Simulated scan of single mutants.
Amino acid sequence: MRRYLDHAFATLGAMVVAIFAAIMVLIFIQVINRFLLGLPLFWTEEVVRMLLVWLVLMGTPVVVYKYQEIKVELFHFKNPGLETFRQITVSILSIIFCATLAYWGYLFMERSLGTLQPSLGISRAWLYAPIPLGSILTIVAFLVRGKEIQEPSDPGKTI
């Protein structure tokens, strides 16, 4: 099962890289068209905004799955039992937050189904779809890594 999840999250990571590349290309095209050619493209701003939401919310589960999030630790216990308890508590609170975000994100996406993006002519739900999807995938990442609570591999990443 873990091997399939590794492949799934690697694929999601590749998708995030592709989204980032698309954002960079679109911004470059927009700058060239607007400032050099004087012909701004009307649709690139909406596409970039939508892709940025997808980038963040699809990237979050990948970061969580790989233990690469930036951690701000106010409490660090020397006792391994208390440290494990702290990590489990943080994971549970994060799962609760993601579940709440998924629920409200789904309702928000559902409400926007009938609304169209002004310049693209597609449903505004595409802008909000990554909220519940990314939240659910982040919950999966937390649950999978919850089975292997461990110390961060790079203490330099801890603030």
Rank of each mutant, 00 (worst) to 15 (best):
F108G: 01
K78T: 08
L55M: 11
K66C: 12
F85A: 12
V90N: 07
L93C: 10
R111K: 14
S94F: 04
R111L: 10
T84R: 11
L116M: 14
L101C: 02
T60Y: 15
G121L: 05
L127V: 11
R86Y: 07
A129M: 01
A102Q: 03
G121I: 10
P61M: 12
P118A: 13
F85E: 09
H76C: 07
T84D: 06
Y128S: 01
Y65I: 03
A102Y: 00
F75H: 11
S91W: 03
P80W: 06
L55T: 09
R124E: 12
S123D: 05
G114F: 07
I70D: 05
W104Y: 07
E73N: 05
S112T: 05
I88G: 04
Q87F: 07
A99H: 02
V64G: 05
H76A: 15
L55Y: 12
V64E: 05
G105N: 02
G59S: 11
R111Q: 12
I122F: 05
Q117N: 05
S123H: 03
T89I: 12
L120Q: 08
L120W: 03
T100D: 04
L93D: 05
L74G: 13
C98W: 03
V90Q: 06
S91F: 08
Q117M: 15
L113W: 07
F85H: 04
V72S: 04
H76Y: 10
V64K: 04
Y106M: 08
L74F: 15
S112K: 02
N79G: 01
L120S: 02
S94N: 09
I92V: 12
H76M: 13
L57M: 14
L127D: 09
L52D: 01
G121E: 06
P61V: 07
V56R: 14
V53G: 06
T115H: 12
P80Y: 08
L52V: 06
V56E: 07
A102S: 04
G81L: 07
M109Q: 03
G81T: 01
A99W: 01
Y67Q: 08
T84P: 01
R86G: 05
K71Y: 07
G121P: 00
G121A: 12
C98K: 01
I95M: 08
R124F: 08
V90Y: 09
L93Q: 06
